[in-house]
Design a binder for these strands. Structure first.
Length: 434
DNA sequence: TCTGGGGTCCTAGGACCC
DNA sequence: TCTGGGGTCCTAGGACCC
């Protein structure tokens, strides 16, 4: 007999996720170093409710996510919380910088939301993967000042769980955790509450608990047939993913063309005057059409809606589909059709708190169908092109349609807005090196 | 005075067709 | 009692995500 050893090294395709901790709050802090260790919240549009909390705020336990700002003024004061209005120009720019860094280290990237991205690593050992995770984490912290958590495993759903483990044990994991072995997988699944599994929301969580399943592990013990029949193919894919058989694939992510484009807003005050509402809806329609043209799209219909205050006595919801009869991307056509429908459904016996325009039936304009009866002036395309180019050059909203808010009377409530440190020349920070 | 916004996918069921 | 069968396309609504 020879004394030969066979050394087995496993190379896997691995999935990971990078998730920025308290992203909006961290972006604000990145440019205000004196806020290190201080509690921060970021508010939604119109300074309505809390949509991001720094870890310090989470520890207070008495300012929940979604807390209505005006009801929590006292609590903010009591804890010395620093309050910010949301600054999407800043967060969007920081997000793309994060994506750029992650992309340097991985084989495939799927930006999943503004503050997180899935990635794939081909033919790596778990040790190598973990090392890459640390490099990503360290570079983002050093270059952007943003703390992130990295989870790595054999599937997306498991990577999400690894990420949750980092969130709970940031120090022990040094911000990166890898579910590598089968023992680690089972331990992690037994630790994870069923409702915390990616893809199991409130409804399904309740159903599963009623079946006596409280942990992710219990879900993986159900039979495929049962899962398929009760939770559809979506539930089945999730089960396989949790078993370590990667089933939920990486997608192209945010770069992909939207299948639906929505622009909806709550109004700072209720509106009941048709003229005012027309102006709002026209602005929404125009901005949706702008997004549509950005992705070289056309749409054949829109959905229009108006809602009264949903916390009021009588909650009124009006809505209607607006079929165009052909595909278009012209702001003029879309706005005209939507406003026409608005006048049909508008009721003057109530006041509205929120409205929106959703573009649907979106196709790519390369496959444009020539139509028998042209309902649109062919000059629109050229005009839109020019309008977009000018707005790009001069700044957003410089050129508007005549039915939009020319006098700029309408304004979002943003009492705690931070400067656009990274996207506006006049807001760039000056550093005194003396 | 005040309560966010924007997406995806799947299924069931109806309309319609041969 | 019972009414053909099989297919496609579309839409509304429900579930989920951040």
């Amino acid at each position: 007999m020879h004394d030969d050893y066979i050394v087995l090294i496993y190379f896997y395709k691995m999935y990971g996720i990078v998730d920025c901790n308290s992203f909006y709050a961290s972006c604000e802090r990145a440019f205000r170093p004196e806020l290190k260790g201080k509690p921060i919240v970021v508010l939604s549009n119109n300074d309505g409710c809390v949509i991001a909390r720094s870890s310090e705020v989470k520890q207070f336990k008495d300012i929940p996510m979604g807390a209505v700002a005006f009801k929590y003024q006292q609590k903010f004061k009591q804890h010395g919380v620093h309050v910010f209005s949301s600054n999407y120009a800043l967060y969007g720019d920081m997000s793309s910088r994060v994506m750029t860094i992650v992309n340097k280290y991985v084989d495939e990237l799927e930006p999943y939301s503004i503050d997180e991205a899935f990635f794939k690593l081909n033919n790596k050992t778990f040790e190598e993967a973990e090392l890459i995770g640390h490099k990503i984490q360290q570079e983002i912290l050093r270059q952007l000042g943003l703390p992130v958590s990295v989870g790595i495993a054999k599937s997306k759903a498991l990577a999400k769980i690894a990420n949750n483990i980092v969130k709970i044990y940031p120090v022990q994991t040094k911000s990166v955790y890898c579910i590598g072995t089968e023992e680690q997988r089972i331990k992690a699944l037994k630790w994870t509450n069923i409702g915390d599994v990616w893809g199991i929301g409130r409804r399904l969580g309740k159903q599963l608990q009623a079946m006596g399943i409280y942990k992710a592990y219990g879900y993986t013990l159900l039979t495929d047939t049962l899962v398929r029949s009760r939770f559809s193919v979506v539930g089945l894919r999730l089960k396989h993913d949790l078993e370590g058989k990667p089933t939920i694939c990486l997608e192209k992510g945010l770069d992909e063309d939207r299948k639906m484009i929505a622009v909806t807003r709550s109004f700072p005050n209720v509106l009941s005057d048709l003229n005012e509402i027309e102006e709002r809806i026209a602005t929404f329609a125009n901005s949706a059409a702008e997004k549509l043209r950005k992705q070289q799209g056309e749409c054949a219909a829109a959905y229009l809606f108006l809602q009264s205050n949903r916390f009021g006595k009588e909650y009124v919801k009006l809505g209607a589909m607006v079929p165009f009869g052909f595909a278009t991307s012209s702001s003029i056509t879309i706005t005209k059709m939507v406003l026409q429908k608005l006048r049909e459904i508008y009721r003057n016996d109530c006041s509205y708190k929120k409205g929106g325009v959703v573009l649907v039936s979106i196709t790519n304009n390369t496959s444009h169908q020539t139509r028998m009866f042209a309902d649109e002036n062919p000059k629109h395309q050229l005009l839109m092109h020019t309008m977009d180019a000018l707005n790009e050059k001069l700044g957003k909203g410089k050129l508007k349609l005549a039915n939009q808010d020319i006098a700029k009377t309408w304004k979002m409530r943003q009492e705690h807005l931070s400067p656009n440190y990274t996207t506006k020349l006049s807001d760039i920070i000056t550093v005194n090196c003396r």
